[in-house]
Design a protein around this nucleic acid. Structure first.
Length: 924
RNA sequence: GCCGGGAUGGUGGAAUAGGUAGACACGCAAGACUUAAAAUCUUGUGAGAGCAAUCUCGUGCGGGUUCGAUUCCCGCUCCUGGUACCA
């Protein structure tokens, strides 16, 4: 083979890897393990674009490197294959989503294989596969059968909870449950009907049915997420959306709030991602207390983080959705208050929150009593109070809370200062100053005042200290077809689990993928969607699981994907354990990454897995943006002006397919055949070229800036694509895709190839011993490669390979002792060419089984150093001196240098700084 | 508003226990090879002045610390990601 024939080489080695199962990873107790994971993709119809593989390439490099270091590496890939686009397509075409999904997966797999990833394809999982979702359903069942014990801080079986209720009721048990769970004794419990008992247990289960407010779109027959709703109308179609209460399954993730927060300390993730999770969980420490309503036997419960300002409360504010709102409105306020509630309720939460400046509210006409001073205060309705957080009611302290202040000023309510300080700039939080005008907590500081106030609450039995989390329980059902069915049937209106042996509950066939005429989910169309037991036939749950169900545990299934007995074999799980390196986008910070941690902690609690945190180290790769190219058409003609000349004409810019542009130069022939209307296009060129304009935008079909990796591979090969994506810049950084520099890495591979070949293209390496210079070049590169690998700095590694090859080329070095280690260094990045060279070097085994070369400091030791000599901090001269010289000797040599003498003009310098082995700075 | 990340040549980027700013690559220019093109190779390339040696300026802006600042500190501007009336 004469030239670097990447097409032949890449096909050859890809089939070699597949045939010999080079990347299959099985448990091997004699080797240390490394689990390298990519966030698995949703197989969309558009196929992979050049941005997708960025993270995969990085993890692949690490995978191959760890193999060279002797690790047993698990590096799997699979598909998150339930999802809306396939369902949407099914609704439009009537084609079963499983068929589209299968086609898309095949396309993805083919594209991924073309890039030469070291994936163990035998471990592939697909979340929409019944063999897989059987276990998603199984995990759901375990959650249903568990409650959260706050004393031991872990999930326990619901059966053991029933036993406790039988013995002592629920008065002593510390367990996470619904707010409105009744208190009962053992006698009560034992006298309850089976139905009643089940109802109560449901209030404790980690997955449970509850009424939830959702965005319901009647026209589309489905529930929409917050970002699918715009100003009360559906984003798609513009149909009206109403806030509606619906029975939905939820996951009691809030039970794990504290552990999810604490666990962040143990993982090596970027600080921003951890911070996002912390904010999402939103822990606040405060107190909960009740205010008596004047003239009624009812109380309003509030949560506050500033109980120390209790004497500054001048009104209470309720969310428009608060359950007491209707009965608190007095007749003289009825008209305005009810109108207000009506308007406020129908604004979506998102609308209400994005419109912070408008202050609105209405007085109910009722009063509450502050238990600390017996004062009567007005009860208002205000939409700045959210129904979903805390108790849906706040005690307003205008003097020390900005929102309360704005509200009070707007409606002319009293502002009463209870903390020392100036009110000149409106409200102030005053966390360090002394409390004033506050009865028995006057003169105290915040902390002491809080403790005393809480003691008062507890003594009077009207409140207590409380920790509140912003995070809410996660809704777990979707009124969709293409998702996992829930293994639940209904008897007497209550949910029961199917028998485990009847799993998986397979998705039924339906005639259409739309909701039924009477608004039931698509599964309502299925025939015989019932569960048969000895007692009879019962209807099955018609909703399906959300997208995050399958992705919350897939990293365990990869370890043992074909197991039919268990979701993962405990021995395998113990061996592979937590993911050592997880690479994926930061957009999953509060979704997938939180849910996966939650399920892992739960599975840990029930003894199903050995780890509590699934992802030890995580890197979030930056998105690759599109770089669009433009041509400039002279208005009203078919004439196109090159970028530099466009200002001389009246032109309009037009997107042009980036695939017919190279280095911003338009390929005129391809342009003419791009679209029929351009066949007779004329061009005004500069220097004989048509130069296009460019702009960074999102990569999308409509902007003609999508680059398919297949095209790059066809033209330059997978190794070039891999190197180039890494060479583009730091992994975490957002950057536009731009093929302008791709020739550089392609040339590098050709130069590398040439090192091993003579001028006739014949493979030829020398057995001669390398000299000092050659060894230095090699070991410098070994050192840099290893360091870069440890800091995930892939772009600089590629640069160091280039330097190495450039140096060896000038040294005309083709010695085996240099080239062999070099091949190994490069093999993680450009595996195909490395395998080929490795086999040409006479090895019969895959290069991935080689050993990473050992770095030897001795080859880098220098005798001399080229000292930069600065005058007043500016480099003016260079001086090569032996490193053995003392500080004084260096100074003397520097002062005698001709250039330095010119600057000092013979005068003694004010100061001379010598850092041996580094620099000399002379101050004059 | 709050919390992150960032700003370096024509372009992607490199360099921070403070120590030669611009590695590597693209692009561009000149040259070699060729009938020619492609490919390949050589040289140059931050800006300005100068025939040149060389000098001045230069890492978003304004200050500061230091013998020395892209790097540390203070105050801004712009871009970007997340999040949001959280009581």
């Amino acid at each position: 083979m004469a030239d670097y024939n990447f097409q032949e080489i890449e096909k050859k080695w890809q089939s070699y890897w597949e045939k010999n199962q080079i990347f299959n990873a099985e448990v091997d107790q004699t080797k240390p393990k490394f689990y390298s994971l990519d966030m698995f993709p949703y197989p969309s119809g558009a196929g992979l674009h050049v941005g997708h593989p960025l993270g995969y390439i990085a993890s692949d490099i690490i995978t191959r490197f760890k193999r060279l270091e002797g690790y047993n590496v698990l590096h799997p890939m699979g598909y998150d294959s339930f999802g809306l686009p396939a369902e949407q397509y099914a609704i439009q075409t009537g084609q079963h989503p499983a068929i589209t999904t299968e086609q898309n997966i095949n396309r993805y797999t083919e594209q991924l294989k073309n890039i030469g990833f070291a994936f163990d394809w035998s471990k592939e999982v697909r979340t929409s596969n019944p063999d897989y979702y059987k276990w998603t359903q199984w995990i759901f069942m375990q959650l249903f059968n568990s409650y959260y014990d706050k004393t031991d801080n872990k999930a326990k079986s619901i059966a053991s909870l029933g036993a406790i209720f039988e013995k002592e009721g629920n008065t002593n048990i510390q367990a996470v449950c619904d707010e409105d769970t009744p208190v009962f004794s053992s006698d009560d419990w034992n006298s309850f009907s089976e139905k009643k008992q089940q109802e109560i247990l449901l209030q404790y289960r980690l997955t449970f049915l509850a009424e939830t407010t959702v965005n319901w779109c009647a026209a589309l027959g489905t529930v929409l997420s917050n970002d699918e709703v715009k100003d009360g109308f559906s984003e798609r179609g513009g149909h009206p959306v109403e806030r509606k209460k619906m029975m939905q399954w939820s996951m009691r993730i809030t039970a794990y709030a504290e552990r999810l927060l604490q666990g962040l300390e143990k993982v090596d993730w970027s600080e921003p991602i951890k911070e996002m999770q912390r904010n999402w969980i939103g822990k606040s420490i405060g107190a909960e207390m009740v205010f008596q309503i004047k003239g009624k036997d009812k109380q309003i419960k509030v949560f506050t983080t500033r109980i120390d300002t209790i004497y500054g409360v001048t009104y209470l504010a309720l969310a428009p959705e608060h359950e007491y709102v209707q009965e608190l409105i007095t007749d003289d306020q009825r008209e305005t208050a009810e109108a207000y509630v009506e308007v406020a309720k129908n604004r979506s939460e998102r609308d209400r929150m994005s419109d912070v400046k408008t202050i609105s509210g209405a007085f109910t006409g009722s009063y509450a009593i502050n238990p600390f001073n017996g004062e009567e205060i007005q009860i208002w309705i205000a939409d700045y109070v959210l129904a979903g957080y805390g108790t849906g009611a706040v005690m307003a302290v205008p003097a020390h809370d900005e929102r309360d202040y704005n509200f009070a000023r707007h409606f002319g309510l009293e502002v009463r200062q209870v903390i020392e300080g100036s009110m000149e700039n409106g409200s102030f939080p005053g966390k360090g100053e002394t409390i004033i005008n506050s009865g028995f907590i006057t003169d105290l500081e915040m902390k002491d005042a809080m403790n005393k106030a809480i003691a008062f609450l507890e003594e009077k039995k009207i409140g207590k200290g409380k920790i509140q989390y912003r995070m809410r329980d996660a809704i777990f059902t979707r009124q969709r077809y293409w998702g996992e069915p829930l293994p639940v049937f209904f008897k007497d209106g209550l949910p029961y689990l199917m028998d485990e042996k009847d799993l998986p509950l397979v998705l039924p066939e339906v005639d259409k993928y739309l909701p039924t005429e009477d608004g039931e989910p698509p599964l309502g169309r299925a025939k015989d969607w019932t569960y048969k037991t000895a007692e009879g036939e019962f209807p099955l749950e018609k909703s399906t699981m959300p997208g995050w169900a399958g992705s919350s545990w897939y990293f365990f299934r990869y370890m043992d994907p074909k197991n039919t007995e268990k979701f993962v074999d405990p021995e395998k799980e113990k061996y592979w354990g937590a993911v050592n390196l997880y690479i994926g986008g930061a957009e999953h910070a509060t979704g997938h990454l939180l849910y996966s941690r939650f399920w892992t902690k739960f599975l840990f609690d029930i003894g199903a897995v050995s780890i509590e945190e699934p992802f030890q180290k995580m890197i979030n790769q930056g998105m690759i943006q599109g770089r669009s190219n433009f041509v400039y058409r002279v208005k009203g003609s078919n004439q196109f002006v090159s970028y530099g000349l466009k200002d001389n004409y009246d032109t309009s810019a037009m997107h042009v397919d980036v695939n017919i542009v190279h280095n911003d130069q338009l390929n005129l022939e391809k342009f003419k055949s791009w679209r029929p209307d351009l066949a007779d296009a004329e061009f005004l060129l500069e220097d004989g070229k048509y130069i296009c304009g460019a702009e960074v935008e999102k990569m999308s079909k409509s902007k003609y800036n999508v680059v398919n990796p297949d095209d790059i591979i066809e033209r330059y090969g997978a190794d070039t694509l891999r190197l180039y994506e890494m060479f583009l810049g730091p992994l975490e950084q957002f950057k536009p895709w731009n093929t302008n520099g791709i020739d550089g890495v392609f040339k590098f591979l050709k130069k590398l190839w040439k090192l091993y070949h003579d001028s006739n293209g014949q493979f030829q390496v020398s057995e001669e011993k390398p000299n000092k210079e050659e060894l230095k070049t090699l070991h410098k590169t070994i050192k840099k490669t290893k360091e870069d690998m440890d800091s995930y700095s892939f772009n600089t590694s590629v640069a160091s390979f280039m330097i190495c090859v450039n140096e060896l080329t000038s040294l005309k070095c083709n010695k085996r002792e240099i080239l062999e280690p070099l091949t190994i260094l490069v093999s993680s990045y450009a595996p195909h060419i490395a395998e080929e060279l490795w086999s040409l070097l006479g090895h019969s085994n895959s290069i991935i089984n080689a050993t990473f070369p050992e770095f030897k400091e001795e080859f880098l030791i220098e005798n001399n150093h080229e000292y930069p000599v600065s005058i007043n901090g500016k480099m003016r001269a260079k001086l090569t001196l032996p490193l053995s010289l003392s500080r004084e000797e260096v100074e003397k040599a520097a002062l005698e240098d001709a250039t330095v003498l010119k600057w000092t003009e013979g005068n003694p310098p004010k100061k001379v700084i010598v850092v041996p082995g580094k620099i000399v700075n002379i101050v004059i």
